[in-house]
Design a protein around this nucleic acid. Structure first.
Length: 265
DNA sequence: GCGACAG
DNA sequence: ATCTTGTCGC
């Protein structure tokens, strides 16, 4: 798929200050409101009973993206779904040049992800990433950074919270429950995006809860680009099936591990 | 100096 | 993220 803003693509050799200033520029270009070229109500995993909605061209193409690692290389995997049906899977193996640094994840994994996305024949309407979007120190997490580069609606789905403060206690909540994540002192105001204690930068979302023992932790859903925090959670809810992770990301995660076997020395 | 941190 | 056995439940 095409890059609308290649100048924002993560380059190697940047200093920490340069990476942070690029993130601020990305955040300034990011849209944290609904600016979707499709109807969010049409996003679904489809109904096994009625197959009519699944193959419909009104049903948006949703891509799940995740990585697995082999020494100093990343394997980035993309799975594209239309109403629950897998229509394409691609992956790319790319050398890594940075270690994992909290707050700079997109500079480690962004290159590999763009390599994988360039292999796509289909052109996704929505990108779902494993990581944060607006829930980020400079409001420019992985999902925001890549969503802006591609100028495609994107959402970040993280398994743990990078920053921000939940409105309520998160323990033992029922399926479907959600509560806002508000900006805190670690979040900077950037461009037209405020970061006051009232600013909602994402939601904690209880996607799954089993009747028995282990209490499942919630997911942390945040806008990447061209989507509001509210619509982002709604979309992730609509894309959730029998597991904790939404289908696009869960399938990309599984595919990243599956494909990895072919490259292990 | 202390605390805190996606994958 | 990754390294890993057993274990509980449907």
């Amino acid at each position: 798929m095409r890059q609308a803003y290649p100048e924002f693509a993560p380059k190697s050799g940047l200093s920490r200050a340069e990476m942070e200033s690029l993130q601020r520029r990305v955040a300034e270009s990011a849209v944290f409101e609904d600016a979707l070229p499709f109807d969010p109500a049409n996003v679904s995993l489809g109904d096994p009973e009625n197959e009519t909605l699944t193959g419909d061209s009104d049903t948006p193409l949703v891509a799940g993206i995740d990585q697995s690692f082999l020494d100093d290389r990343a394997l980035s995997a993309v799975v594209v779904l239309r109403g629950g049906e897998v229509v394409e899977r691609v992956h790319a193996v790319t050398d890594l040049d940075l270690p994992y640094i909290p707050g700079l994840l997109s500079f480690r994994e962004g290159g590999p992800i763009l390599d994988a996305l360039s292999e796509l024949d289909t052109d996704p309407d929505l990108l779902v990433f494993d990581g944060s979007g607006r829930i980020h120190f400079r409001q420019a997490g992985l999902a925001t950074h890549l969503g802006v580069i591609c100028d495609v609606p994107s959402i970040g789905v993280a398994k743990s919270l990078l920053c921000g403060t939940p409105d309520e206690d998160l323990d033992g909540r029922p399926e479907g429950w959600r509560t806002p994540i508000r900006a805190d002192d670690s979040v900077d105001a950037v461009g037209g995006h405020p970061a006051t204690p009232e600013t909602t930068i994402g939601y904690a979302f209880q996607s799954r809860q089993y009747d028995s023992r282990p209490i499942v932790n919630p997911l942390y859903v945040s806008p990447g680009h061209r989507v509001s925090a509210e619509t982002a959670v709604d979309l992730i809810s609509q894309l959730s099936g029998e597991y904790k992770l939404p289908e696009p990301t869960r399938l990309a995660d599984a595919y990243a591990d599956e494909a990895k076997a072919q490259y292990e020395d």
